[in-house]
Design a protein around this nucleic acid. Sequence first.
DNA 1: ATAAAAAATGTGCTCGAACACATATTAAAA
DNA 2: TTTTAATATGTGTTCGAGCACATTTTTTAT
Lengths: 346, 346
Amino acid sequence: MDKKYTIKDIAKLAGVSKGTVDRVLHKRGKVSPLALEKVNEVLKVIDYEPNLIARNLKNNKIYRICIVLPDPKIDPYWLPCLNGIDDARQEFKAYNLVIETFYFNPEKKKSFLKTNETVLGLSPDAVLLAPLFHKETVDVIEEYHSLNIIVNTFNNQVESSFVQCFVGQDLFRSGRIAAKLLDSITDKGQIAIVHIDETYKNAIHMQEKERGFRNYFEEKENSEYTITTLKLKNPNVEISFNNFLNENPDVSGIFITTSKAYQIAKIISAFKHKKIRVVGYDLVDENVSYLNQGVIDFMIHQNQKRQAYLGITSLVEYFLFHKEIPEMILLPIDIVNAENAEYYIE
Amino acid sequence: MDKKYTIKDIAKLAGVSKGTVDRVLHKRGKVSPLALEKVNEVLKVIDYEPNLIARNLKNNKIYRICIVLPDPKIDPYWLPCLNGIDDARQEFKAYNLVIETFYFNPEKKKSFLKTNETVLGLSPDAVLLAPLFHKETVDVIEEYHSLNIIVNTFNNQVESSFVQCFVGQDLFRSGRIAAKLLDSITDKGQIAIVHIDETYKNAIHMQEKERGFRNYFEEKENSEYTITTLKLKNPNVEISFNNFLNENPDVSGIFITTSKAYQIAKIISAFKHKKIRVVGYDLVDENVSYLNQGVIDFMIHQNQKRQAYLGITSLVEYFLFHKEIPEMILLPIDIVNAENAEYYIE
DNA sequence: ATAAAAAATGTGCTCGAACACATATTAAAA
DNA sequence: TTTTAATATGTGTTCGAGCACATTTTTTAT
């Protein structure tokens, strides 16, 4: 009853040859109305699922997927992505896939352009892109598109109709979550939103998080907080923030919009006056350390590993199994405290 | 350079036939020392990965996997599992797999035994089991084992050497997480651990969570809490708990060890005296509703969907791709508040 | 009516691993 | 040395989809 029908079965049932069935299934034409009718009749009754194994055995084209992302040696934020890429590579190693990683220097537009130039030269079937530089990205994507190379982006969103799929998180919502967390662990007083080393390339990220954060408190009636935004730049973070704390003794909560919560945590742990609550992003070692010490209360996990993983697998499954690529994959926004952190560290 | 070698390639390189290579690779014997040497020499140099697609095309055995779990109509806790099962079914629908679901009445041992009897009669290749009744489970697993049927368990752990893999969460740790959460949102006072409708079949679950919960506060120095355990049974939950609240005005936090936090939330939302913090389990509709109302503060997500999914996929990948089945798959323990709940509801 | 062109249909090979079976080689027995 | 047994090696088929090519049928033109 659960028997899998083959093209041969259909051919026999319809009284035609497998070639005809094949033509009907693939709408290749050259089929008489009568034969078409007969085959469709059979297809209506049975539930035909092509055997993907056989299909892939035949179609042994080598698909090449290139991943373009910032060098994790320069910005360790991207390090978990490598594990996600490895996972995907491992999972599909039986297939004819070449999955290659290409780094660029996240501080240099030129490096970004050059890396993409290299990738373009390889004419891969698809590219998974971490689009840091807005204008350059749009141009690059257009180039890929003109060569019929599919482009997925991850981590950062960029509005281009040539992007097949974006994998990432809803940053606005992520800001709201941070707000809710701080709200639940502090009473009243001043809350500081801290942007560290804001640059053109991550500004949108931070602003979106801030928007969500403020939105939460705006929606909440009779909220007893005042909210201040601070933009700090290394190497002056320590001095500036210390000054801020001294000038604002009523600070009860801090929301850091980047991976650099540990810088603030360091200052706070020295600042013994009162308990200040901290919420930040990303499970980099330093953050986890302060999380375990109780200086940071909650972290929000951006799940870069899974972003990279899903960015690749959606492409692979499209090539191999003809699965549709979704327009957007929004990952859950994981809340992490000292007790469940180990599950998310990767 | 990334070329995939085939058996034919090896044969040519070694100067033997593909039959001989096959015998060497599968250690089927009937190979002369000389030929063995020649083939091994080649294998040492190149990196041969058998093409799993071709292998599976040939070995087109139909694998049958049965999932045995409580009827979700009786206990909706199990409802998300169906989605996980469907996901797995969908993902592998191209392969020769029969994935069938069998329900039993979670309140009746007899039903459990009967369902397993039915499954045994089908002699599947593997079974994914939700082992509610301890003794009976051990016996059933032994029966499966004697028929060479692989058994994975999920949700509940049962110590039997015949279980290939357990998929679930670390309940002790989950208790600790709940403790940490309550600790971070309450100051001092009394904390109540509430077990609702504790029965033999879920007692271990609850106790393990309680152990973890208490362990957290034991480790913490100068904790200003007193912790009380309450065992409530329907239909007396409302009366008993109301009495408890009235007799203990210093209650500041509640940890409910089952999916029934909504019952407690209902009572609390009527009890206006002071803010009491609540942490519970599972994203059933009623709980989510109280989470959104702000009566429940945090939920812990047990991820039944993914438990079922991974329980199946580990089996499928073993059969299809000869992947090793891990002894244990521990899922992350997700912390959920009103803002990120939507991502986990399934 | 017949040839030529067009359309429809069927056949056969490929992909790589696995294994049955046929053939070749070597070793042991007569 | 020849026969027989044992062992080693090679060949060919299978799985299902896909596609090139061969063959058949139908249509159009002469």
